[in-house]
Design a protein around this nucleic acid. Structure first.
Length: 435
DNA sequence: GCCTGCGGGCGCC
DNA sequence: GGCGCCCGCAGGC
């Protein structure tokens, strides 16, 4: 992404005004700087796939968040697909404390307990995210590279809460369908918001809408408890039409087409013909007080090919396994759904530079015996963009500047000296082939 | 109940 | 002073 090219820092007295923006990245990792349009709903919410909590940096202009890490099993058990348990820690301290010590929800786990794997990716401290709002853009900067797997998607825990709080059902397929429907609902609302925003912004001359970063789309109109459908690959969103921004003749014209969609997930359908009024205890899957003992050696056998959804519908399948696989993949409808947990992958991963001056800090390994990491570079869908105009802000002040002017600008006031480029590396979905 | 943002306060460097 | 972190509070969902 833009690191290396961009010259601004979130703490600069003034930040540039940019005319083109990055598409939102939910899983920004490494030292990343991005610029989002002010209409980007995710950016406005300071959303992140990582579990980020607010940190007081005593700067009202810059919102700072630090990573809470990931909730893992103390026994480091494996899921049926060979991956590990990596749940999303609650942001609320109280809720997070409640999470810890609970039995590992993996039915294949023997006695494991949930514990927080703290993030130490920034020189031994948690990775931090910074958000700064200006009139014309939302600046994002991340410091540090996460040294732990991605937690489950943000929506997953919400889905579980929703399911757990709702009527109890029996039947994994139905549960999955409901989960998907809830996630669908969430995504639908998100997209509807974006659509309405698109209209509004066109009318009110706001920046272009965010192109959804997730690659899936609601494919049915089922209600949350009637859904008979499942995720499928999204048809690429239509590129933003630049000429809908008449008031910004110099801006937004280069707003990019969305990144190519991730490799499509296999079409996944569920038989939801199960009785809807059966009884199911969510905790039977999510929280098992007495994990079921393995009936086979874990390390050897759990590395088998993940169960497919065909397996799921097969009477011989272990539904909870398929559920776990699906949970890892699809819950929440976010990027993590397309990018399985990093521990699924081999040993070839080279952990990125830590960007720490004090290199002596021993970088924490999540599963050191396997070097299970994944490219911690920037956000995945980060189209390269050109800058045509820059403006500089001093916490709200606006000092317009275009490229021509910049050639001669002495930067006596705005501490910004070189061509600003929000380009950043186009993330490669290294995981898609495994989906 | 939980998420989120804000802000006071403390300790460390 | 900068930073990390804890805590409590309040608004919102």
């Amino acid at each position: 992404m833009s690191e290396g090219q961009s010259e601004w820092d979130i703490n600069d007295a003034v930040v540039p005004r940019v005319s083109s923006f990055d598409s939102f990245g939910e899983w920004c990792d490494g030292h990343v700087r991005r610029v989002y349009p002010p209409g980007c709903e995710e950016a406005r919410r300071h959303a992140s796939g990582w579990a980020m909590r607010n940190t007081n940096n005593h700067n009202v202009h810059i919102l700072k968040k630090s990573c809470l890490g990931v909730l893992v099993c103390s026994a480091r058990c494996r899921l049926p697909d060979g991956s590990r348990v990596h749940l999303r820690p609650a942001i609320c301290d109280k809720a997070r404390k409640k999470q810890q010590g609970k039995p590992c929800p993996n039915r294949l786990c023997n006695g494991g307990r949930l514990e927080v794997q703290p993030c130490r990716g920034h020189c031994g401290y948690p990775v931090t995210h910074f958000w700064r709002h200006t009139e014309h853009a939302i600046f994002f900067q991340a410091k540090g590279a996460h040294d732990h797997p991605r937690p489950e998607a943000k929506g997953a825990s919400e889905v579980r809460r929703s399911i757990g709080a709702g009527r109890r059902v029996r039947g994994l397929a139905l549960l999955l369908a409901r989960e998907a429907a809830i996630a669908d609902k969430m995504l639908t609302g998100k997209q509807e918001k974006q659509m309405s925003q698109k209209i509004v912004t066109t009318t009110h001359l706001q920046p272009p809408p965010l192109i959804p970063d997730n690659q899936r789309v609601l494919t049915c109109a089922c209600g949350p408890f009637e859904c008979t459908c499942r995720w499928r690959a999204e048809v690429p969103v239509e590129p933003y039409v630049a000429n809908t921004w008449p008031a910004e003749p110099q801006g937004y014209a280069t707003y990019p087409a969305p990144a190519p969609p991730a490799p499509t997930l296999q079409q996944q359908t569920y038989d939801t013909s199960l009785p809807a009024d059966d009884i199911f205890h969510p905790e039977e899957i999510f929280q098992l007080d007495q994990p079921i003992r393995l009936d086979f050696p874990m390390e050897e056998t759990t590395l088998e090919s993940p169960p497919t959804f065909a397996d799921l519908n097969n009477d011989n399948s272990r539904p909870e396994e398929a559920y776990w696989l699906d949970w890892q993949r699809a819950a929440g409808g976010s990027e993590s759904s397309e990018t399985p947990s990093p521990e699924l992958f081999g040993n070839g991963y080279q952990h990125p530079e830590n960007f720490c001056e004090q290199q002596s800090y021993p970088h924490q390994m999540y599963y050191p015996e396997e070097a299970q990491y994944y490219p911690a570079e920037s956000c995945r869908e980060s189209p390269v963009m050109d800058m045509q105009e820059q403006r500089f802000y001093r916490y709200g002040q606006d000092c317009a500047q275009n490229n021509m002017d910049m050639q001669a600008w002495q930067y006596s006031d705005c501490a910004f000296a070189s061509h600003f480029d929000v380009q950043h590396t186009q993330g490669v979905n290294n995981f898609g082939g495994l989906l």
